[in-house]
Amino acid sequence: MKISNHPLYKTIIKDAWSYTTGAVLLALLNISMFAVGGSPWGITTAFSNWGSWVFRSLGGEPEKWAFYAANKGNFNALMETSFFTNTQSLQNIGIIFGALLATLFASQFKVKKIKSWRQVLAAVLGGLLMGYGARLSFGCNIGAFFSGIGSFSLHGWVFGIFLLLGAWIGSKLLVRFFMT
């Protein structure tokens, strides 16, 4: 039997897992990450550090910014870790390689063509807004929302309300500008 016809291959590698399976795995992995690493899962603080490390190497002093100066955890991550010793940076690399492996195993890898320059503009603007918002709220939908609620913190729920509001406005804009 060809491996691509095997029922286990189809269930585990090829077909998308159910939302429930995903939710349970995310919860278990986040608990493990918290237990082992001391802080729950997050993504975007690492991006701030990547930018700040580059800025420092060019002679800048980001450690004097309130984001670092007023927060000991952020300050230590900036000054005492590097790309290869910073847990969150390594986790982000893991996400990218993990996603690549998963799509290759499922034979679903494709380099998508860019359909319009409007799409590029929207993606860049959206990325900048999300990055800016993630810094203001000390996290993205993972660090602030998922890990926030998992830590029984009120800020996760507040983030969630505005996440829904933003997604609603975003989908209206999407239909308005991309349905032609």
Binding site: K112, K113, K115, V175, F178, M179
Partner: peptide, 16 residues
């Protein structure tokens, strides 16, 4: 709908 992300393919299908 090649090169288009959610929810565009769905909305376009519904409209069509």
């Amino acid at each position: 709908c090649f090169g288009e992300a959610c929810p565009l393919p769905l909305v376009k299908t519904q409209k069509k």
